[in-house]
Design a protein around this nucleic acid. Structure first.
Length: 559
RNA sequence: AGGACUGUGGCCAAGUGGUAAGGCAUCUGGUUUUGAUCCAGUGUACCGCAGGUUCGAAUCCUGCCAGUCCUGCCA
């Protein structure tokens, strides 16, 4: 019964089943979701999961998904975050109609709905202080007791609430509470606070208000006002669904069968990283990372800077699916998703990150040869690029050993032949070292008849290594990133900062092909045999490349 | 006896009474001027455990176990 466009087949999940049922039963004739971040931090990959779910549903059912800033707590929020959130959602490739929504847009309506509850005898102004409120609430196993202010008349409550709005009470002096059930097994139903007094400047409404609604009150009503059909949130809000339902059912505008309903799915946990906003804030403020967009951060902006593409993030979200199981997702799924995308779209290039000089002794001195190399070996249509070859080259230190350790070794060694990628076959002849025994120069010979073809005598050369011609090579910095933490679940560590990976960033200095001089920011490249890299989007006075992810390596696993 | 939710191969995840999809990872071959890609193949899953209903149960019932969440004037 879904009217999703042909060709797009997303994996099924329990939420889609619910929507399909609702549509089939004509409970709803349209789908409206929303992504409701609080603008108090940067978006991370966990939010991306939610964004893809909510906006993806809207796309598939030709419905609508609102971007809504849940800005009911001005003390913690800032426009810096609303801007970054808009940017990140757009970058992921999703769109919202018109201006984004803000809960703060509805402050006046919220106030009127609160008045409705007061008139119905379902809300009251309570003068218990925070500590007393806690005592009155009871515990998980014992019921609470009624506030002494619980039976104030609606007329009096109305006057009190007006006075709250008018600034007649100090912060903490009183709150507006729903009158529900102090014995409920759901703690959130023990007369939850609806409004508190805060003389705080709000990033959207300025100083217009000194009372601000609580999440439980604002969220369901915002959904109702916007005509949201399916309000999707994470598991920790399961209990809150009772207050969500109670409020909508007690408000005349919303107590209809087709009112919004809340459904909960499990949040994303990714191995070797943290997802809590508090911890991410801490990493930034303790300067353990460069900032919110540090490429090691699981933030959208960090992943973008690292070289992840919107397509890869969306594909990842699709691969992990949606369920209600508390789970821990392996990094491998994320990495496989980027590799799949980048393998298809990334131009190939060669970069040497830990250079050793190679001299081809039988190559004419002073000559520089131009070679046309494919930009993508599996996609001719991407064309060719010019690379260079001469008597002096750079290869990577990891690609040479004096003596091959075993028969499986496929790289350069003395008296061993190897193919230089896109160029000739060379053979190691001799080498020089420094006083510490490190190789400084390797002298080789080349077979002039092997450019673009195999040796005529039929000898097999299995190994292929990459290189950069020395005179035209451009110096470049490579930032090789690894997991931020050393343990799979750093969030559970007593002190998560103590389990940071000291090698999460290794900076290498080497060379790239001259064609990389104008590499656009964020453009993904595959440095052949090394991995996927992109030009850093912050540093522009020199060539800095961030490693997005290494190539799949089944070889080093065997060693 | 506080309540809510969850438990399907190493990791995600379909499945809603008819005899266990798929992805990632793993392993094995083949192709390959990236030890990549690509292609083909690869799993004895006590479906948390124990009972029960049924011709038949991962799916229904009962009991138990384990994990997560709930006592902010945070979201």
């Amino acid at each position: 019964m879904s009217n999703k466009p042909e060709g797009i087949e997303r994996p099924v999940n329990f939420i889609r089943n619910i929507i399909n049922d609702d549509l089939a039963n004509h409970l709803h004739d349209r789908v409206c979701t929303r992504f409701p971040p609080e603008p108090n931090g940067y978006l991370h990959i966990g939010h991306a999961k939610s964004i893809c779910l909510n906006f993806g549903l809207a796309e598939d059912y030709q419905g609508k998904c609102n971007l809504r800033f849940d800005d009911t707590n001005p003390a913690k929020e800032d426009v810096e975050y609303v801007e970054s959130i808009k940017k990140d959602v757009r970058w992921l490739g999703f769109h919202w109609e018109g201006e984004p929504c803000y809960s703060s847009n509805y402050f006046e309506k919220f106030y009127q709905y609160a008045v409705e509850l007061i008139n119905k005898g379902l809300a009251y102004v309570c003068f218990l202080n925070a500590e007393e409120t806690r005592e009155y609430r009871g515990t998980l196993k014992e019921p609470g007791k009624n506030s002494p202010y619980r039976d104030t008349s609606p007329q009096e409550n109305l006057a009190l609430f007006e006075k709250m709005r008018a600034g007649g009470f100090k912060e903490g002096e009183c709150v507006l509470r729903a009158k529900i059930d102090m014995a409920s097994s759901f703690m959130c139903m023990r007369d939850p606070t609806l409004y508190r007094v805060r003389f705080e400047h709000h990033h959207q409404t300025g100083d217009e208000w000194c009372i601000y609604p609580m999440y439980d009150f604002a969220h369901c009503i915002s959904d109702g006002i916007e005509g949201v059909t399916h309000s999707l949130c994470t598991l920790e809000f399961q209990d809150n669904r009772r207050i969500y339902d109670w409020l909508l059912d007690n408000l005349d505008d919303f107590s209809r069968p087709d009112r919004p309903h809340q459904y909960e799915f499990s949040r994303l946990n990714l191995e070797y990283t943290v997802m809590s906003k508090r911890k991410l804030h801490q990493l930034v403020s303790d300067k353990l990372v460069e900032g919110w967009d540090d490429p090691r951060m699981p933030t959208i902006s960090g992943m973008r800077r690292r070289g992840y593409t919107p397509a890869s993030v969306r594909d990842f979200a699709e691969r992990i699916g949606i369920s209600k199981v508390d789970s821990m997702t392996e990094m491998g799924i994320l990495e496989a998703a980027v590799r799949d995308d980048l393998n298809k779209v990334a131009p190939r290039t060669m970069a040497v990150m830990d250079p050793i000089k190679v001299v081809i002794e039988n190559y004419p001195e002073g000559e520089v040869e131009v070679i046309q190399a494919p930009i993508h070996p599996q996609n001719e249509a991407m064309g060719k690029r010019e690379i260079f070859f001469s008597r002096e080259l750079y290869i990577d230190r990891a690609d040479f050993m004096e003596i091959a350790p075993n028969g499986k070794y496929q790289r350069l060694a003395i008296n061993k032949e190897v193919r230089l990628r896109n160029a000739y076959i060379i053979k190691g002849e001799r080498f020089e070292t420094d006083v510490d025994g490190n190789f400084t120069t390797i002298y080789c010979s080349y077979d002039p008849e092997t450019l673009g073809k195999n040796p005529a005598d039929g000898r097999k050369v299995k190994g292929v290594i990459h290189f950069v011609e020395a005179t035209k090579a451009l110096p470049a910095e490579f930032r090789v990133y690894d997991r931020l933490f050393t343990v799979p679940n750093p969030g559970k560590a007593e002190d998560f900062e103590s389990v940071l990976n000291p090698d999460s960033l290794i900076v290498k200095n080497g060379f790239v092909e001259p064609g990389m001089a104008e590499a656009p920011v964020e453009q993904a490249y595959q440095c052949e045999r090394e991995g996927y890299f992109c030009r850093d989007n912050k540093i522009n006075d020199r060539l800095v490349f961030n490693r997005t992810v290494a190539l799949r390596d089944t070889w080093s696993q065997q060693k």
